[in-house]
């Protein structure tokens, strides 16, 4: 399969790779995984007192499309409010990166990761954010 130029660009020069201290007060962490391919993605946001996302970082272990999707999302959410970040749609990611149908799940993963990060931040700060549950509620074992 051939990747689009934008995917290759993010894949070869990923933006904002790394981690924040998970327990730091302004940090929200989202962790998700794709059972379809075994990719794992961690996306973190650093939020200032005005509720604006100042910085974002990610670590993704997966294919080029998954890396590009998370890299793009960290770029997009910087300077956005939490609510704006919550409204990010996987279709926007897929369109920007020209992902083929078989790679759409990579953009879903990135959307779920940013939402999980926002939810984690809100939960930490008692902002009424329920734990983000994507399409299925988490089950206890």
């Amino acid at each position: 399969m051939s990747y689009s130029e934008k995917v290759l660009d993010h894949y070869e020069n990923p933006r904002n790779v790394g981690s924040f201290e998970k327990d730091a007060s302004g940090v929200g962490t989202g962790m998700v995984g794709a059972p379809a391919c075994g990719d794992v993605m961690k996306l973190q946001i650093k939020v200032n007192e005005q509720g604006i996302i100042e910085d974002a970082k990610f670590k993704t272990y997966g294919c080029g499309s998954a890396i590009a999707s998370s890299s793009l999302v960290t770029e997009w959410v910087k300077g956005k409010s939490l609510d704006e970040a919550m409204h990010l749609k996987n279709t926007q990611i897929a369109e920007e990166l020209a992902l083929p149908p078989v790679k759409i799940h990579c953009s879903i993963l990135a959307e779920d990761a940013i939402k999980a990060a926002v939810a984690d931040y809100k939960q930490k700060h008692g902002l009424g954010g329920e734990e983000y549950t994507a399409c299925n509620p988490p089950k206890e074992h």
């Binding site: 962790m31 998700v32 995984g33 879903i108 993963l109 399409c135 299925n136 509620p137």
Partner: peptide
Amino acid sequence: ALDPNNTVMPADFL
């Protein structure tokens, strides 16, 4: 079992 739209895994597992 492998529905690609299901991205929720237990946190400790991830």
